[in-house]
Design a protein around this nucleic acid. Sequence first.
DNA 1: CGGTATCCCCCGCGATACTG
DNA 2: CAGTATCGCGGGGGATACCG
Lengths: 233, 233
Amino acid sequence: MSDFGQFCPIALASEVLAQKWMLLVIRELNAGATRFNDIRRGVPRISPTLLKQRLTQLEAAGILFTRSLQGSRGVEYVLTESGLELKSVLGAVGQWGQRWARDISADDLDPGWLVWAMHRRLDQSLMPDDPVTLALEFVDGPAKQRFFWLVCSNKAVEVCVKPPGFETDLWIKTRVITLAEVWRGIRPIQPEIAAGRIDMRGSSDLQRQFPTWLMYSLFAGVERPPRSSLPLA
Amino acid sequence: MSDFGQFCPIALASEVLAQKWMLLVIRELNAGATRFNDIRRGVPRISPTLLKQRLTQLEAAGILFTRSLQGSRGVEYVLTESGLELKSVLGAVGQWGQRWARDISADDLDPGWLVWAMHRRLDQSLMPDDPVTLALEFVDGPAKQRFFWLVCSNKAVEVCVKPPGFETDLWIKTRVITLAEVWRGIRPIQPEIAAGRIDMRGSSDLQRQFPTWLMYSLFAGVERPPRSSLPLA
DNA sequence: CGGTATCCCCCGCGATACTG
DNA sequence: CAGTATCGCGGGGGATACCG
């Protein structure tokens, strides 16, 4: 994917950006990930080989640079000014995707990805000072992706796939599609709770507060227009 | 390129948009092209087979629809509302590309593409009422891409690769890179003319007016920052 | 944790020719 | 003009195993 034979800026940009997985890797970096395996968690289906290749291409294109870490092995991947400015591309693509992309199917509904996306969009300023442990159960999730825990302190939110050892303060039980569509801003959360499709158990204070922490997808506020029927047909 | 396994709007949009040639095809459509071979002229290196495939994918994604033409055979490719909204993506990508994409090389300098791009960006409101025929000679162009003619009426601008049969009113002789960099907004045009690197012959009225017709690339006004040296190195 | 190494398959894509 | 048809290859990328 390197030669379009024209010097249009869209063509030149496409050489780098219009490759498989590339925008998703850039999305992770712009969301704050700097470590190899953190990026992988946001792009679970990319192979490590290919991820490394994409990161190398991004470095060659001047979109990121690497910085070695003291203490830990490996490097940090840090966006340059050029990479940070890709936020405008991510915004335009995401906004268009929210409005016009195809409907989602069962194969898109990765519960692990949803949890990973959510954990970055919990408003820590609203959380109590004491750490809170949330348990998520996806009743229709595959065996290995059925339970997740979110350990929220006012410093950070961590995702666990095994019980973290702390007492769980709030249990949330739902189907993947339910939480996914709430996350996408397609359904409001309150009716889902009221109808029991999002089933919460635990401290009633937390039950009331939790929905306010959740900031949803960055594009949740973008309205999805009705699919117009075939034009002129 | 169909399965990223996540329902992020950027991932869903990428399935369609992040394929080879796709953004360039969309660029042509958004620039007003509706006919198969008009699109090809803006994306000369795509094969007809692949172009047809891309157009089919765009239709399946609801980005365009086809409309049969009376009189001529073939169809017209017309953007839907969804397709028109991709202008924001093209804008973001083009802007980023103008600022941060790699420098161009000799292989990017297709004179035919430059002329095709230019012919859409001549301000017809400034042209005289009488038709004007411009001849372009690229002194370093390959034999078959050395001469072009632009026939400008106040209705439309047409590109010819053979003498159009009208008297040429203005000859313009230059190297490809010179006009390309002027087009990109990287060099101002007046010094190029003054230094004779853009050599014009013909009516002195037209010599004065022509530079005012030329609207340059859509991204010519976007400043290209200096490449920062290696960060922290 | 942060990657390499290897293998292999498939299909995306380029090239060319042809047709109504 | 607006595509189809056909062929063939190259390498992109998926899967898996391994390593420091």
